[in-house]
């Protein structure tokens, strides 16, 4: 009669973000920006967690997928939308989510393009291929005049609001969670645990890896679209290797292959970089020291305590 528990949680989060969205206009724009940035990080980290955490691959190209989605959706809302003559409400509540999905799909396509030929590679080799992909995207964007080249794409409408960000975050976490808890989804974990054994059991390991890449890339693309319409400006420089590393750090700090840990790490790291503004010139030093301390004291991930799971203690 009632939907299962997990779906009730999803609905509850969606409803909560819709409610908060209604009052977010009264929030200080700076805090709103930080909160929305944190939400976008959750989408990015959770989707990368599927690839790096649960499926055990090592991708360094997440910023590249994000860039594809960001530019695709921004081009839709800056060039196509004005010609349609839609009302402001229709733009924000119908056209914008569609452009997000379109950006996500294009990013997923890029996921197939990168994944299919390169996923037979493992570990470091795959990392280097995905790293190369991310850089190629960046360099291409820097040279295409139609999207502003290295000057950047300006005048993107600010459609991103509380509901779209935290709604997308909730959907991302839910989809990754549900996927892994399905019968099919157990295969991801098998691939991560022992690829040879998984293959011997008859699993199509390459198929699993591509699926992980495509789903991960889709949500990265959606996150890119949200980012574009939050900042109102895109520059290829923002999708460099540094950005990919930032997302990888969130996944590692959250504990590879933990749902809640990665979500909290994404929120924490985004809010942390902002709250450290008080330390002025020492901001990035304090941040780096905190990362080192966290990694030394909690190598298994931030939120893996005996309290949550009896199987894992400190190593």
């Amino acid at each position: 009669m009632f939907p299962p528990r997990s779906q009730r949680i999803l609905l509850a989060v969606l409803a909560a973000s819709a409610l908060l969205s209604a009052v977010s206009g009264r929030l200080n724009p700076y805090f709103l920006d930080v909160a929305l940035g944190a939400g976008i990080s959750v989408v990015l980290a959770s989707s990368l967690n599927l690839i790096n955490g649960f499926t055990g691959q090592f991708s360094l190209g997440h910023a590249g997928f994000m860039a594809v989605g960001a530019y695709a959706s921004a081009m839709l809302t800056t060039t196509l939308a004005p010609r349609l003559g839609l009302s402001a409400n229709l733009l924000q509540w119908v056209f914008f989510p569609l452009s997000l999905v379109a950006g996500g799909l294009l990013a997923a396509l890029a996921g197939v393009a990168v994944g299919a030929p390169s996923l037979r590679l493992k570990g470091d080799y795959l990392a280097i291929v995905t790293l190369g992909f991310g850089e190629i995207i960046k360099v291409v964007l820097q040279n295409v005049d139609a999207v502003g080249a290295s000057r950047g794409l300006t005048g993107i409408p600010s459609h991103t609001n509380f509901f779209w960000v935290f709604g997308s975050a909730a959907v991302t976490v839910y989809v990754v969670w549900a996927l892994l808890n399905s019968t099919y989804g157990r295969g991801f974990l098998a691939v991560a645990d022992d690829e040879v054994a998984a293959e011997a059991m008859g699993l199509n390991t390459t198929g699993y890896k591509i699926t992980a890449f495509v789903v991960g890339a889709f949500f990265a693309g959606v996150a890119g679209g949200l980012y574009a319409h939050l900042k109102g400006y895109l520059n290829p420089g923002g999708f460099s290797f540094d950005k990919s590393i930032e997302i990888v750090v969130m996944v590692i700090l959250g504990g590879m292959g933990r749902h809640s840990g990665v979500v909290v790490a994404a929120l924490l790291l985004t809010v942390l970089t902002e709250s450290l503004r008080q330390t002025g010139a020492f901001r990035m030093i304090v941040y780096s020291v905190l990362l080192i301390v966290l990694m030394l004291t909690r190598p298994q991930g931030l939120f893996v305590w005996p309290l949550w799971s009896k199987k894992e203690g400190r190593p």
Partner: peptide, 12 residues
């Protein structure tokens, strides 16, 4: 870790 105990999800 996949199914996750109740407490952890509400913690999220």
């Amino acid at each position: 870790s996949v199914s996750g105990p109740r407490s952890r999800r509400s913690f999220l």
